[in-house]
Every structure is written in C-alpha cells, then in structure tokens.
Design a protein around this nucleic acid. Structure first.
Lengths: 225, 225
DNA sequence: GTTCGACAAGAGCGGTGCTCTCGTTCGTGA
DNA sequence: TCACGAACGAGAGCACCGCTCTTGTCGAAC
C-alpha cells in the first residue's frame, strides 16, 4: 500500500540521489555539497534533510550504489563457460574499465576514507560482490583441479572463514594458501588500478592497457590459473 | 646572508608547518583547516597567507615532507649487506610500519587525490625515494645474477626508461620483464597496505602482521628473490 | 470537517578558504 | 641619519559549507 505521498517521496529521494550522483561524478566526494544538490533539484537546503538525515547518509547511499555498479560490471564480465584464466582476466579488465570511467566513485570506494565517515554494515554485501566473483572463479578452478593445492607454505587461520564464505561461497573448502593468494590478488588488482588512477604511474607506464593486461596475466599465473 | 627578518620568517614558517603536520596527523587532510592552524600558532587566519599563498601550498609542503619521511624510513631499513630477499622484506615492512603509524599522511600520499589539487613537480623526487630503494635491491640482485632475466614474455617499452632511472638508477639495464615485475611489486605493496589501512581487510585477515609477511614473501618469490 | 503529521521555506549559527584594507614595523638605499 | 618601501599582523568581509530551528501550508486519515 503505497500512498501518493509515499510515491512522491520515493520519487524525490531518487531525484536527490541522481543529482548527488551527477555531482559526485563531476567534482568528487570531498567537494560534494548538499546545498548544491538541493539547488540542482530546486529545493532549499534544509528540505533535503527530510530525505537524508545528513550528508554522510547521502554519501552512504552513493557508496552502496557504486559498489553495486562495479559488482554488477564484474558479474556481467564473468563467463562461467570460459577457462579460469580468461574469466579472471575478463573480470579484472571489467573492474579497471569501470574504475577508469568512474574515477571519483572509485576513489570514494577504494581511496582514502572520508574523515568523519564510518561505513555502516549495509555496505558490506554490496562491497563484496567483486570479491565473490573473483572467489567463485578461483573456487571453481580449485574444484576442477586446476589450482595447485599448496604452492606455498601452510598457514591455516590467516584468512578468516568469513572471508572464504565471501571469496568462494559455494566452495568453502579452499586451501589456506589459495585463500591468501586470492586475497592478495584482490588487493593487488586494486593496487594496480589505484596507482594508475591516482597518477602514480605517470611517466613510468607508457601503455596503460598493455601494462594492465601483462600484470594481471602474471598475477593469474601466480594464482595458478 | 640571512637577515633577522628572514630568520624569523623561516622560524614562523616552520612553526606553521609543524602545527599543520600535527593537525594532519590528528584529523586528516580533508579536515585540515588553515584557520585552525592559524589559531594554534596564535595568528589570525589572514596572516598565514603571508607564508603560504593557499591551503594547497601548505598541503604540498606536508606531502613532500611525508614522502621524505617514508622514503627515509625505507632507506634506513635497507641493509645493503643482507640477502636480496631479506632486504626486500625489510623495506616492505618499514613502509608498512610507517603507514600504520602515520595513517593520515599515508592516505594523503597514496589515497584519493585531493579534489582541486594538482601535485607540482617538486614532489617527484621525494615521491620516488621508496621506489629507488626497491629498484636498487632488484637491480643489485639482477646484477649479481640472482634474478632470472626473463621469466615472463618479453614486452620491451612497457615501462619507460625514466622509470628505470628511478627504479634502479645505477643499473639501467634492467630486463624489461624485471621492470614490469618491479613496478607491479611496488603497486602491490601499496595495494596491500592500503587495503589494510582503509579497512578492506576487516573481517578477512585475522593477523595483519603475519598476513603481510606471508604476502610480501610470496611477492618476493614472484620477483625471483 | 477537523486534526495531525509531513513538508518546503527561511533565518540563523558556527565554521571554512580567501581577499582587501589599514596601520605598523623593520631593513635598506640615499 | 633618515626617509621610503616592502613585509607584516590584524580585522572586516565575501561566498560558501553542514546543520538546526521555527513558521506556515497542505494533504491524508479519522
């Protein structure tokens, strides 16, 4: 039972988040101004507080949306029928492509945490979608025997079972050395993308596309794919 | 010929940067307020503009200092007499230790770029000190034959000679596959540290120290050390 | 038909970066 | 020696920010 009032409220909330998303893409999270958002939707600033109790809550909404976007991009790029190595590379490329076309959103998710902001628990499911995709690829590869079970030293308990439940939900029996490598691969992927996006490769890497493919290929080899 | 005026100017400039550094460590770059810095040194805000033309210039000073700090920490941790693998691990640990004890400074250097801010060329030498240390270790290992010259496919020209001049100044003849791996190792190191500092490992990694050592050890192995 | 809650608007508070002006003070060249 | 100009600190002010409080209105439920 959605009254007319509830519908117009939902509509206005969407209008606000849309304007905020546009502003985030343009000027970045640090310069995102609730007042400017209000201006764009033709409201006075205090009226926005009827819909979002604070600027941080608006930011949380954008963060969850962004996590969902990059997660969906990763899921879409994964073709379960392909070979594990190709699946891995395709997902990495998809994440990088999304990051390059949404630099401010990427920075909001994976850059410096915003000062007073503490991520609420709501963000966790959205935030782990990329990890789930990567974990599924590794898990299925492991199950089909494509992954060497213990390439490094054993070190059980380093990576929590919770993380495994995320990184390879259906295959929770991932070897602990695979767990570590999976987590490392995840952070290495984001290290590579961040360095590129944040300008630390300027003057060093000539061809970003080729470098990324090369490095992710080596990383896949390191994983055993 | 330093007049009295120049001396007191230098003194006041140092006092301002010190106060700014303290505030950066406490509240982070985004919340660093020039007015608060002015209050701390007992000035009125407009007076600070005699010493720094803008907040961004003050930030630039802090960025360079922070790069120098982490660079010095890396240099201090490197014992040229040790084995390449141990040198590598020691430098990585030193960078992580610095990052963990200076989280806001680290975020300023390697997190999201601040919105309106464009890093001036002055920051480059300071920014590359860690890279120089890592490059020297790899270069010397390569020269002594400890590094397999071409573990991956050949891909010349991927990493610029400029970067090699930084990443291994005295040994500019680094094989191109070593170049790529060195640059990857650099960004992977920062990916690992960033994920830890920015909270992406929360709930996944039980023991941060052990995980870091394990991962950096694998990375060293990947490099051929 | 009345009452009550949701709502938009406005004023206002304390904060920000930055600019301009106004006296003062200090180093230096005549 | 002394006057001049540059450097300086202080203050007011501008436009912006997040956020709160009050006020008047309008719609929906009872």
């Amino acid at each position: 039972m959605s009254s007319a009032r509830e519908r117009v409220r939902a509509e206005l909330t969407a209008e606000i988040t849309d304007a905020a998303r546009r502003q985030l893409a343009e000027v970045g999270a640090a310069a995102l101004s609730l007042r400017a958002v209000a201006r764009e939707v033709g409201m006075v600033s205090s009226a926005v507080y009827r819909y979002f109790p604070s600027r941080d809550d608006l930011l949380t909404r954008l963060i969850i949306d962004a996590y969902d976007e990059v997660g969906a991009a990763a899921e879409k790029a994964d073709d379960p029928a392909a070979a594990p190595r190709e699946r891995w590379l395709a997902v990495c490329r998809a994440v990088r492509t999304w990051a390059r076309s949404h630099p401010h959103e990427y920075a909001l998710l994976y850059g410096s945490p915003v000062p007073g902001y503490q991520a609420p628990a709501d963000t966790v499911p959205a935030a782990s979608r990329v990890g789930v995709v990567l974990g599924r690829i590794l898990g299925e590869a492991a199950q089909s025997g494509a992954l060497p079970p213990a390439a490094g030293e054993r070190d059980p308990g380093l990576v929590s079972d919770d993380a495994v439940a995320v990184l390879g939900g259906e295959h929770p029996s991932l070897d602990d050395s695979v767990r570590v490598r999976a987590l490392f691969a995840w952070s290495a992927l984001y290290g590579t993308i961040s360095f590129e996006l944040f300008g630390h490769f300027v003057g060093s890497v000539e061809d970003g596309d080729r470098y990324f493919d090369r490095v992710m290929g080596e990383l896949a080899g390191h994983l055993g794919l």
